[in-house]
Simulated scan of single mutants.
Amino acid sequence: MKAELTRQWRLLDLQQLDTRLAQLEHRARNLPQIAELAAVSEQRDRAAEDEVLARVAVSDAERSVAKAETDVEQVRVRTARDQERLAAGTGSAKDLQGLQHELETLARRQSELEDVELELMEQVESLRTDLDRHSAAVAQFDARIAELSAARDQELAAISAEQDVATGERANVAAGVGADLLALYERLRDQRGTGAAALVAKRCTGCGLELNASELVRIKAAAEDEVLRCEECGRILIRTAESGL
């Protein structure tokens, strides 16, 4: 293939821009905020699960307290009714004695139920403390996620702006390469990651290998507009003032 040397030199500019675009894409995929977001989101999910379990525990305990309050209230109502009957003095002595015994039993029962109610209320307070702790953890994770998301979006916006500039510059450079040479370059870039490399100090900057003497003689004898390829890596080899020929 033949191409003016100035067109070939443009490939080095094009390769530089493509390398920059690849670096920007890699940077966008590997922002530290992305990895941290994944880790924090996982922690947040676990904290949210703990919060749900804690909320269910509080709800169950509150129902138990409500039932205990109902049991105590029932005993109180029955006690008040028996006390009224005892105070009225109606009924036989045996009946009144029975009421007195029942009141004693109800008093013991009320004391037991109130102890249970108090214990359950203390349990609810403890469970509410746990729930508050889990809720606070979720809120902290949410705040960190929002912070990381904002930082990620800011970085991505900056990267996107750089990509737009580089893409515009690439289009201008590619226009001066020519369709035939550009097609070869693009094919090689798809295959090897980079399509063109400068020959510097008798070394291909694409594969990093120094060319042997016979290859250097061939390159030196080639016409200026001859499109050369590195025998080792196959990339388009661009001769420059630093080639060492």
Score class of each variant (00 low, 15 high):
Ser111Trp: 07
Asp115His: 11
Asp130Tyr: 04
Glu112Pro: 02
Arg108Phe: 07
Glu114Thr: 15
Gln123Cys: 06
Met121Leu: 08
Glu122Asn: 14
Arg81Trp: 04
Thr129Trp: 04
Asp82Val: 06
Glu112Met: 12
Ala68Glu: 06
Thr105Gln: 14
Arg133Phe: 12
Met121Gln: 13
Thr79Ala: 11
Leu96Lys: 13
Leu103Ala: 02
Glu102Asp: 13
Gln100Cys: 00
Arg85His: 06
Glu104Phe: 03
Thr105Tyr: 03
Glu114Leu: 13
Thr90Cys: 03
Thr90Ile: 10
Glu84Ser: 10
Asp132Arg: 11
Arg133Leu: 09
Lys67Gly: 08
Glu122Gly: 08
Arg108Gly: 15
Ala88Tyr: 02
Ala66Phe: 00
Leu131Lys: 10
Glu69Gln: 12
Ser126Asn: 10
Glu73Val: 03
Asp95Glu: 12
Val72Gln: 06
Glu69Asn: 07
Ala88Gly: 06
Glu102Ser: 12
Lys67Phe: 06
Ala136Ser: 13
Gln100Leu: 12
Glu117Lys: 14
Ala136Arg: 11
Gln74Tyr: 08
Gln97Thr: 09
Thr129Gly: 09
Leu131Met: 13
Thr90Asp: 08
Asp82Met: 11
Ala136Asn: 02
Gln110Pro: 02
Val65Cys: 01
Ala66Glu: 12
Glu102Tyr: 05
Val75Arg: 09
Leu106Glu: 09
Ala107Met: 04
Arg76Thr: 06
Thr105Asn: 09
Val65Phe: 03
Val75Cys: 04
Gln123His: 09
Leu118Arg: 12
Arg85Tyr: 07
Thr129Asp: 14
His134Ser: 06
Val116Arg: 15
Val65Ser: 04
Ala93Trp: 05
Glu119Phe: 06
Gly91Tyr: 02
Ala66Gly: 00
Ser111Gln: 14
Ser126Glu: 14
Arg133Ala: 15
Arg85Val: 13
Glu112Ile: 08
Asp132Ser: 10
Leu106Gly: 03
Leu113Cys: 02
Gly89Leu: 00
Thr105Gly: 11
Val124Ser: 04
Ser135Gln: 15
Val72Cys: 01
Glu69Leu: 11
Gln97Glu: 11
Gly91Met: 05
Thr105Val: 08
Asp71Val: 10
Val77Phe: 05
His101Gln: 14
Arg108Lys: 14
